[in-house]
Nucleic acid binder design. Structure first.
Length: 270
DNA sequence: ATCTACTCCTGATTGC
DNA sequence: TGCAATCAGGAGTAGA
């Protein structure tokens, strides 16, 4: 599930480990999207995590001159556990043992990843990423310039991490509904004015979602428990055949775009 | 260079 | 109830 708001929530939830030393790391199953290099992680024993932050949908744990790079994929979750508990959940892959607790990475579908890396901006997973959607760099003018010649649908452009990061299938649908733009529109046909609205909607929707994540943080990240991701009140995603929340007349339709489900209102989104 | 389809994997849900 | 088919929120990669 994790898109930018969920990853941001996770980063906030594990801040207690910033400033703690890694006592050891347990690798139960190194098979993720790329095989985890167990050897390199063993060199980290005894070192301190100085900072934990996010770039796009990646989580970074900074340790002196290297950092642990984590991607949650589709089904990855982090959970905090008490140090004494030995509760193993199915699909637990990696466990970081700190002074005051444990951080466990669980991922049933194994689309997530974990790397030990050097300079983040030079890593192959990060070096082509576009700007953060909540930064000043991302605005209508930027997006217009970036995709004004593109033939691909605006929804694909929004989800393309080289254009702007952090937006996945749910929020792309929600953002375009908020902006009243039809997801199938070719990017090159989007006017500057519409771009301003898209950028505005993107910031608005993501901020609302981050806030919602913050309010449910307590339930989400309890030691030894993980109730799963929060959901904001979605207007179109997974609401096929339901009445549009804007016009209250037309039904939301579901189509497939580039193998992914797209939801929109034919009346409100043009 | 741009764009789309395929692919990795397990689990929940839907349909017969 | 059982079993098979379908679908899932990501994104690198191959190939058109």
């Amino acid at each position: 599930m994790p898109e930018l708001p969920e990853v941001e929530t996770s980063v906030q939830a594990i801040q207690e480990f910033a400033d703690q030393s890694l006592e050891s790391i347990e690798i139960y199953n190194p098979n993720l999207r790329w095989k985890v290099d167990s050897k390199s992680f063993k060199k980290l024993f005894g070192l301190k995590v100085n900072k934990i932050n996010r770039r796009a949908k990646y989580i970074l744990l900074h340790i002196e001159k290297s950092q642990i790079l984590i991607h949650l994929g589709m089904t990855g979750t982090l959970r905090i556990a008490n140090k004494k508990s030995n509760f193993y959940k199915k699909h637990d892959h990696i466990e970081f043992i700190f002074q005051k607790g444990k951080l466990i990475f669980n991922d049933p579908r194994r689309f997530g990843s974990m790397h030990l890396i050097g300079e983040p901006s030079k890593h192959f997973l990060l070096d082509k990423l576009g700007p953060e959607p909540l930064s000043r760099e991302f605005d209508g003018e930027y997006f217009f310039q970036k995709i004004k010649k593109s033939l691909s649908p605006i929804k694909n452009a929004l989800m393309n991490q080289q254009n702007v990061v952090g937006i996945g299938n749910i929020y792309a649908n929600e953002i375009l509904f908020d902006a009243r733009i039809r997801p199938t529109r070719k990017s090159k046909t989007i006017t500057k004015k519409e771009h301003n609205k898209i950028a505005e909607s993107a910031k608005k929707i993501l901020k609302i979602a981050i806030k919602a994540g913050g309010t449910t943080l307590k339930d989400f990240y309890k030691p030894d428990g993980n109730k799963g991701y929060f959901k904001i009140d979605l207007a179109v995603y997974d609401r096929a055949n339901e009445k549009c929340k804007n016009c209250k007349k037309e039904s939301i339709i579901r189509i497939i775009q580039s193998q992914r489900a797209t939801f929109y209102c034919r009346k409100c989104q043009t």
